[in-house]
C-alpha cells in the first residue's frame, strides 16, 4: 500500500498528493510517470511524476479531477493509501547537451507535467522561459514553483482575468519575433495546444518536444493501447515516450484516439456521483 503523506488543493480542479513510494522515488527522472490503482475495482491510471525526493522516498503527483478515478483520488486524504503505484515508467526526458535557451509551454494542468522538466533544465544552467496558459486566473497553478525555476515566466489567461489575455502560442510567437533565440521548446498540455505550438515552432525551425498522454492500460509495452503515430511509424507512448518530437506527431489521430472511451467514462463518473450522493456534476 502506498500512503498519502501530504495533500494540497492547487485550485478547485487540481490536487497535489505526496505519496510514500520509495522504489519509485529512487529511480524517478523528469518526464517519467507512474500508474496508480486506488483499489481492487479501480482502473490503472497514468500520472506524471511531478516531483520526487529520493531521501524521503516520496513522489508527488498533480492531477486534474476529470473523471471517476481522478475524482476518487482527489477525495483521498493524508493517511489513506493507494493499492498500487508503479513506476517510474516511460523514458526520462533527455535534453541533448547543446541547449542554451529553452521555452517551456504548459497548458493548464500541463504546467504540472512541465514543471519537473523546467526544474531540470534550470538546474543544468539552461536559460528557461516558461509560458503557462490557463482558462482564467482562478485556475492558475504552480506560479511560485515555476517562477523559481524560470528566468522568465509569462502567464496567459484565455479570458484575460489575470491581466494578460491570450493563448500560449501568441506569447511564444511574440517571444520568438522579439528576438528570443530558443533552441528547444517543450510543450505540454491539451493535444490541440501541443498541435498548434508544434505548427508554430516548425515555421521557425525550433526543435520541439511534446508529451503524449494517450489512454494506457499496463504502461509496460504490453497492450499497444497507447500507440501514437510518430513520423509515420507506430510507437507505444508508455515505453517509447511519453516525450516525442512534436513535428512528427499525428495529432489528429491522437485526438481521435483520446475519445475512444468518452461515453463509458461519462457513465462511470455519473454512476460514482450518484453513489456518493452528488448531483450530476459538470465535467
Amino acid at each position: 500500500m502506498f500512503e498519502v503523506l501530504e495533500k494540497r488543493e492547487l485550485n478547485e480542479q487540481v490536487t497535489l498528493l505526496k505519496i510514500a513510494a520509495p522504489f519509485v522515488a529512487k529511480k524517478a527522472e523528469p518526464g517519467q510517470f507512474i500508474i496508480f490503482r486506488i483499489d481492487e475495482e479501480g482502473e490503472r491510471v497514468p500520472l506524471t511524476i511531478a516531483d520526487f525526493d529520493r531521501e524521503a522516498g516520496t513522489v508527488t503527483i498533480i492531477f486534474q479531477k476529470v473523471g471517476k478515478s481522478t475524482v476518487r483520488l482527489g477525495a483521498m486524504n493524508v493517511g489513506d493509501a493507494l493499492k498500487d503505484f508503479v513506476g517510474p515508467l516511460g523514458v526520462a526526458s533527455h535534453f541533448g547537451g547543446e541547449v542554451k535557451k529553452a521555452a517551456i509551454i504548459g497548458g493548464g494542468l500541463g504546467t504540472a507535467i512541465a514543471y519537473p522538466q523546467a526544474k531540470k533544465l534550470h538546474s543544468l544552467g539552461v536559460d528557461v522561459t516558461s509560458i503557462c496558459g490557463f482558462r482564467n486566473k482562478d485556475l492558475i497553478i504552480l506560479e511560485d514553483e515555476m517562477n523559481a525555476v524560470s528566468d522568465k515566466l509569462i502567464i496567459t489567461t484565455d479570458d484575460g482575468s489575470n491581466g494578460n489575455q491570450g493563448f500560449v502560442t501568441t506569447a511564444l510567437e511574440n517571444e520568438i519575433t522579439g528576438g528570443a533565440a530558443f533552441d528547444l521548446v517543450i510543450a505540454i498540455g491539451p493535444l490541440i495546444m501541443m498541435k498548434f505550438v508544434s505548427q508554430l515552432t516548425k515555421k521557425y525551425g525550433i526543435k520541439t518536444i511534446v508529451s503524449m498522454n494517450p489512454i494506457m492500460v499496463d504502461g509496460t509495452g504490453m497492450c499497444g493501447g497507447c500507440r501514437v503515430t510518430v513520423g509515420g511509424e507506430t510507437k507505444f507512448a508508455c515505453v517509447d515516450g511519453p516525450d516525442f518530437d512534436g513535428h512528427q506527431i499525428d495529432f489528429d489521430e491522437a485526438m481521435r484516439r483520446s475519445q475512444m472511451y468518452k461515453s463509458q467514462e461519462k457513465q462511470s463518473l455519473e454512476d460514482h456521483q450518484c453513489k456518493i450522493g452528488l448531483g450530476k456534476g459538470e465535467n
Binding site: 475495482e41 482502473e43 492500460v217 497492450c223 493501447g225 500507440r227 463509458q264 462511470s268
Partner: peptide, 29 residues
Amino acid sequence: NLNGVFSANEFLTRINLMKAYKFPAYDTP
C-alpha cells in the same frame, strides 16, 4: 490505429485482469 482496433493483449487484459466485463462495477471500460 483507428478507434476500435485492439491488440488481443489489450482486449483480453481489459476483460480478464481489469474485469471490464463487470463495468461499471469495475472502472475499466
